[in-house]
């Protein structure tokens, strides 16, 4: 990336551990675009990057934490959100971004996702959804469309996938959106909104996994992008119950939830901690 042409610089070099590049992501993978969008949003949002941490779980997207030149945490599989929750309790002033994949956040870590959304922990969760467990070789995931072939569903997935925005909405997230890597401008703007917004923000990013998912499902890299272009319908404020991904009919994108309620730490401090003396309040301010 940064070292491909002598003397050239990538505009995100200042946010990358360039010594870790080249990255591990396969040709045609969408994570790089999602990651760039996330870093560009972090820059554009004006948040204090000295007070920003990125937390990832395990999987291809989980490598994000290792490439960002900020305080970052490559946690155990599924536990990015609880690690991030602990960080926010210890240092509520930190901006904590969780960048991870669908397998990590919604299968092994699914319970943590719904509870952090319920508590409204002030996190920005960017989920790269590539519809399978890419890193381990393309096994069926909680997001794999019904009927899709994977290495553990060789004749088709018998199960139904999660509708992630609906799950986030039902669990209490105060910001919910979905974009694809083809919609990089909208995606970047959405992550930026999520970053500056207080409370639990969830951005789902659809990204192709041509090597492990695509080739088993007759989707060449360009086919997936074409589907993102031809089948996507931007419908802000759409009914979350109608957001099931359907590559044959429609993939609804947009911002679906943008509401306000007290964050986890705000509610805790108001309910469980003794009120501050006026003098302390001045100090804290």
């Amino acid at each position: 990336m940064s070292k491909s042409a002598k003397g050239s610089h990538h505009p995100l070099d200042d946010l990358l551990r360039t010594d870790r590049i080249p990255h591990i992501w396969c040709p045609g993978c969408g994570i790089g675009t999602a990651f760039s969008a996330c870093l560009m949003a972090m820059k554009a949002s004006g948040i204090d990057l000295e007070r920003t941490a990125m937390v990832s779980g395990i999987g291809c997207s989980g490598r994000g934490a290792g490439y960002v030149k900020l305080d970052s945490y490559h946690t155990t599989h599924g536990r990015a959100i609880p690690f991030a929750t602990g960080m926010k309790l210890a240092r509520p002033e930190l901006n904590v971004v969780v960048f991870s994949g669908d397998g990590d956040l919604f299968a092994i870590g699914g319970n943590h996702f719904i509870h952090a959304a319920r508590r409204n922990v002030d996190l920005t969760v960017v989920c790269v959804n590539n519809l399978n467990y890419g890193m381990t070789g393309g096994q069926v995931a909680a997001t794999t469309p019904s009927g899709s072939k994977t290495t553990t569903t060789p004749v088709g997935n018998p199960e139904a996938p999660f509708n992630l925005p609906l799950l986030a909405f039902a669990s209490g997230a105060t910001y919910v959106s979905r974009w694809t890597i083809l919609h990089s401008r909208e995606l970047t703007e959405s992550i930026e909104e999520g970053l500056v917004k207080k409370g639990f923000s969830f951005i789902e990013v659809l990204a192709p996994c041509p090597v492990n998912y695509g080739r088993r499902n007759r989707q060449r890299p360009m086919d997936t992008l074409r589907a993102y272009q031809e089948k996507s319908i931007i419908m802000n404020d759409a009914d979350p119950t109608r957001l099931q991904i359907d590559f044959d009919r429609a993939i609804i994108l947009g911002k679906f939830v943008d509401t306000e309620r007290p964050t986890c730490v705000e509610s805790y401090d108001r309910t469980c901690r003794p009120p501050m003396e006026p003098a302390d309040e001045e100090k804290a301010a």
Binding site: H77, A107, I108, Y133, M135, T136, G137, Q139, T151, T152
Partner: peptide, 12 residues
Amino acid sequence: AYPITPQTHIVE
């Protein structure tokens, strides 16, 4: 099972 490297080939 749940996939984890290097167990995956067994269950695949």
